[in-house]
Amino acid sequence: MRFIELDSVDSTNAQAKRLAEQGDFGPVWIRADKQSAGRGRRGRTWTSETGNLFCSGLYPHDGNAHQLAQLSFAASLALADTLEHYVPRNLISLKWPNDVLLARAKTAGILLESGHTQLNIAHHQKWIVVGIGVNLTHHPDMTEYPATHVMAHIPQEKLTGPEPVMTGAQTVLAILAARFTHWRHMLLTQGFAPIGQAWMERSYNIPGAVNVRLPSETFTGEALGLDQNGALRVRLENGTIRDVHAGDVFFGAE
């Protein structure tokens, strides 16, 4: 696996997209100590304090549009695996579609962007950028959703034993890159079913009450599971089934 380390960058996703536009389609992971313009979904600012992990994986993509969205789940499983190196497994849960929670608080953000680069008049190469931010040493206060950071949950004996775990952003990224490679490979060779199953095993509050906020409407119901593409299947109070593909979802008593 190839890694590019930067002191600072506007955003690692933007840097990855620039590489792709120059004809480098990865696989490669880019990490920066600082981001001056870290972004979340729809232009939301992602606080980028030094010590935390900001990284983006760039991979060629030859699958279909559905598979692009499904890589979101592969990324969240990869991060959950990574955190298992550090914190007790029972603290980690997944919230649709790709949030990784620690003790039910947000500890990371994952945002994927696809694109393609024209190679010549007849051919273009599709690619995907997987942007991942992980709160390792700090987390922002006053967020809409409760936040935490990884260091706060690492058992003392893991840090002080004869072979303490390496907690630097570089190490965390190496583990993450290996685990993403694993889950991506599974998606490409076996389809979404095993990914969806593994994701459900670690999901938070499914089945359970859910509030869905779309740009145009808000509704509540019971989250039942994932459809074959990864959409969140919700049963409304009147029995209607809705499959949610994008939007903010709030589970249980949040």
């Binding site: 696989p27 060629p60 030859d62 051919h123 190469q125 694993h182 991506r184 490979h185 490409l188």
Partner: peptide, 16 residues
């Protein structure tokens, strides 16, 4: 040790 085989699936073939 962990991944059955790494995911290098024919990367550079252009989608037609």
């Amino acid at each position: 040790a962990m991944a059955p085989s790494p995911a290098q699936l024919a990367p550079a073939v252009s989608a037609p």
